[in-house]
Design a protein around this nucleic acid. Structure first.
Length: 259
DNA sequence: ATGGTGGTCATACCA
């Protein structure tokens, strides 16, 4: 089972780039972030025509997550628990059953800039809530896949110019510590585990020729429960997508599970 | 220190 995560930066603006990638990469599951669409405005037929089941958790203008899956999506849950006043659409869960059942989470972690400030506080509080949700899900003792845009650069080797990010919410010590504490509950960071070398990026800013200079950062991650890590076959990044027509500023990250 | 690009929605906000 091939499971990918892709921050598409607007589903309407990315129809062509997204469908071209789906047809080429052929994931069984695609976790999408920043759909920037209400549920009723999501062009679900385009994906259903390609054989995908579609579940969305959108909001107007910003944020929004979705799951596309060739297998039926069961027990869908929307929203990260822990704050009833939080109206931002950043979390969706569903189960797919292939050879074995896999619980999927698609997540769009808050950016948090400027830091310090209320947006940074929201980011750190959101990460606390995520940690609690992960702890609960780990008690299921089943394959769990947490894929998404984490807006966290885990280490200096995950940025082409780490010195440029020292005061940024994506690289502040608090953000990295919170990410580390989630991983250290017993999750496997798929890309880092498969290839620990520096220089693997998933995001290149639209500005200042970041892509042409390979001035990238690695902020899109796949975290696996022990039961998912046991069946991890491969993991990678579809870097070439960044060179396509009207690309997102992120590229897809994928894993292959024996599941 | 500033502005550089892009998406959404229609004016600023977000990244």
């Amino acid at each position: 089972m091939k499971i990918a995560t892709f921050n598409i930066n607007g589903v309407k603006a990315r129809i062509e780039a997204l469908t071209a990638w789906l047809d080429d990469a052929r994931p069984d599951v695609a976790l999408l972030q920043e759909i920037k669409s209400l549920d009723e405005g999501f062009p679900r037929e385009i994906f259903e025509d390609r054989g995908f089941f579609v579940e969305t958790h959108g909001q107007k203008g910003f944020n929004g997550v979705a799951i596309l899956s060739k297998l039926p999506l069961e027990d869908v849950e929307r929203g990260l628990p822990g704050d009833d006043s939080d109206e931002q659409a950043r979390w969706i869960e569903a189960t797919v059953v292939g050879k074995i059942a896999v619980r999927l989470v698609g997540l769009y972690l808050p950016n948090g800039n400027p830091a310090p400030g209320p947006k940074f506080d929201y980011k750190l509080a959101w990460m606390d809530r995520m940690k609690a949700r992960v702890a609960h899900m780990l008690t299921l003792e089943m394959p769990l896949v947490f894929g998404g845009d984490y807006n966290v650069i885990p280490d200096a080797i995950d940025a082409a110019k780490p010195e440029a990010w020292v005061d940024d919410a994506l690289f502040r010590p608090e953000s990295r510590a919170a990410f580390r504490s989630i991983v250290n509950m017993g999750l496997t960071e798929a890309i880092r585990t498969r290839d620990p070398r520096p220089g693997i990026y998933t995001f290149w800013d639209y500005q200042a020729g970041a892509w042409q200079k390979n001035n990238g950062i690695r902020i899109d991650h796949m975290l696996l429960s022990p039961q998912a890590a046991d069946v991890l076959i491969d993991a990678g990044i579809d870097k070439a997508v960044r060179d396509g027509d009207k690309p997102s500023d992120h590229v897809p990250v994928w894993i292959e599970l024996d599941a």
